[in-house]
Amino acid sequence: MVAEDLFKALADPTRRIILDELTEKSGQTLFEICGRLSMKHQLTISRQGVSQHLAVLDAAGLVESRREGRYKYHDLNTAPLRQIAERWPAPEPPGPEESTP
């Protein structure tokens, strides 16, 4: 049930870029996120549109909003991604005895 929100959130390329930018620096205002999308990624998207993407990421638990005085910051939370690794575990990396000649 929670996973549905997670996959939906990750399915959109703009939302993945928002996550990339929050990985670079967690704790951004809506204005900063919009600036990064338009200036760094040449994405023409309205503030309203970015707000809606943040709402989807928020529903999936990937982004958390925090009020600090008069400002609102958006933080990254990658904890929900653990569900994916647990459901489809990656193979163990090769051990040291295999990598030594």
Binding site: T29, F31, E32, G35, R36, M39, K40, R70, Y71
Partner: peptide, 17 residues
Amino acid sequence: FTQEPLEMGPVTTAVFD
């Protein structure tokens, strides 16, 4: 500052109260 200095292509910006 609500936004620390950020390089975005040719422009660098920051935002303060």
